[in-house]
Design a binder for these strands. Structure first.
Lengths: 336, 336
DNA sequence: CTGAAAGCGCTTACAG
DNA sequence: CTGAAAGCGCTTACAG
């Protein structure tokens, strides 16, 4: 019952290991009869090639490492979960495997990444990070890497980019807020993020100024979102509509609004970003910017494959977003 | 700059590969001076042992595969995220690695599990599943396996169990509902789950009957929770308190309550289970049963290690739960 | 179409 | 304390 190796397996069929190998992989000429016999016997005798031997001889692991640098509790945000899901599906379809890096401390996460790359546990890395940090890339081993972020990065020949174009979705949020008569509008989220700039510009185009006192920095954990919302909403001239950089932050805003007895969308309009699974099921359902996770994953894997076959200087791929309107945006008249 | 192998590395130090290997792993006698020189040179020359060669020669991958069978979108529930997190931390501390199975279709998930085990990509499996399904275990290769569930399973010598004792936490929920004067009480969740039986018994002990019409079957996605809640809450004699089998279901109840204009906890009390990250940040914050994820992870890894060193027939480890009271449970008088 | 043999990069008895 | 050599289980030129 113990695991059988290719030698024993070949012997019991009375053929060579070379033929077994070729039959399994369909490479090189093998007679149809032999191939069939091998394939059938694999099930019967219970032979599966040892992965590590294959990886060693091929000089490839067939694995790609996925990480979300500069994030604390990675999976606490369903955004990451959605992306991880999409990535594993796509990788599997391409005969590749996923190694997910869930380390919490930034340092542990980075160490694991290095360990993976240096020991050749993975062939490539995928980094999901708002603004691709050149210094992180410089610290990491120069393995094929694709960065999923909001801007392209051109410094390194071994890295390709998938650029999540925030513009379209966020513009729609700004437009919709303004169309509903809001003029005191807020933003909660990472303030270094390009999303803030896009939001501010979109508002300006519609004649509205995003005031500094209505911008609150926050990580993407609901607790931080809630605290930031408290600050914004307790001002004399509080915003009547807030754009949350992530849906998780929006959850925090719901919490704060409830504590302050503000109804959504009656007293306060809210829009989120990411369209996580939960967004359709908040009370009321959250209007948010949708991301096509599948599309990101498939482009990412395509880039990895090209990077692995020695292509360099790949053009960034752009993915755009769009707003899904649900029930958290109301008119300002009610609020005022 | 290319990856250097142990032979070249040893040569450039003028020593043998055997000595390098021993210096790195601290096994066998090596002079302190040599060891130090090797360790220092690893950084300088950039040598890291090839993982696949190590795995091949050791006959161990050092990896454990984690899966959540009988679940659809695994990470859509933060419960799984929390557990996956805790597992990777714990494995890392024990020089082991994590392979996370995120396949959606049950069949794909099972296939990946088999592939991992048969190809020796993983040394052991961890299955998180309510009621350990003997048939699944029978279908899977007989590698060391630990099942995290609600009941022990004794059928197989290669599987050990971590039993999540639902009793304590759920009893507290029942007691608290009753203490608040509720008598029409509901349950939403998996109806095959032992949680339902525990809840029913606890209620009975307090003199309350859990009526069949107040029990609604539901998966742990908020959408299902919401639909189930709609059914329960639109009855003539609707429940005034509902226990949700998972926090995600509780999210769905929030959604339904909002649609029906029922205030929580004014008109409806709710308790969840799992204490996911988000539970403290719902509006209002959710009372829910807390699980010690770290403890589960550390016991699981301990069991794996024993299983790997050829121990069999290990006693199940029990982990108990407790209720965290937040703001979703009110008295029935208000509701009535 | 098939087989014998070399080699992937390590570790670990076995000698010394 | 250290080295030469065998071997882990595959794949892939190289012959035939």
């Amino acid at each position: 019952m113990a695991n059988m190796n290719i030698k024993d397996f070949a012997e019991s069929l009375g053929i060579s290991t070379a033929t077994v190998s070729r039959a399994i992989h369909g490479s090189g000429r093998v007679s149809a009869a032999t191939r069939e016999r091998v394939l059938k016997s694999m099930d019967e005798l219970g032979f599966t090639p040892n992965l590590h031997a294959q990886q060693l001889v091929r000089g490839r692991s067939g694995m790609v490492g996925l990480a979300f640098p500069e994030q604390g509790k990675v999976l606490a945000d369903l955004f990451f979960a959605a992306l991880a899901h999409a990535m594993q599906q796509e990788l599997q379809d391409n005969n590749l495997g996923l190694m997910l890096n869930l380390m919490e401390r930034e340092e542990s996460q980075e160490n694991l990444l290095k360990q993976w790359a240096c020991s050749q546990a993975v062939d490539a890395l995928v980094l999901v990070t708002g603004t691709p940090s050149a210094s992180l890339l410089a610290r990491l081993p120069q393995v094929p890497t694709v960065v999923i972020g909001h801007a392209a990065c051109h410094q390194f020949p071994h890295v390709a980019c998938v650029v999540l174009d925030l513009e379209q979705g966020i513009r729609s949020v700004a437009r919709l807020f303004v169309e509903h008569g809001h003029s005191s509008i807020g933003y909660i989220g990472n303030t270094d993020d390009s999303a803030l700039a896009v939001f501010r510009t979109s508002l300006a185009d519609a004649g509205i100024t995003l005031k500094a006192c209505n911008v609150a920095a926050s990580g993407s954990h609901p607790s931080e979102g809630s605290m930031a919302a408290m600050r914004l909403l307790q001002q004399a001239n509080r915003p009547t509509a807030i754009f949350a950089r992530t849906d998780m932050i929006a959850m925090g805003i719901f919490h704060a609004a409830s504590a302050l007895n503000l109804a959504i969308p009656g007293d306060l309009s809210v829009a989120g970003h990411d369209d996580i699974d939960l967004a359709s099921w908040t009370a009321p359902p959250l209007s948010t910017v949708q991301i096509n996770y599948k599309s990101i994953a498939s482009h990412t894997v395509a880039l990895i494959k090209r990077l692995l076959s020695d292509h360099h200087q790949l053009e960034p791929v752009h993915i755009s977003t769009s707003l899904v309107v649900r029930e958290t945006i109301g008119s300002s008249s009610t609020a005022a």
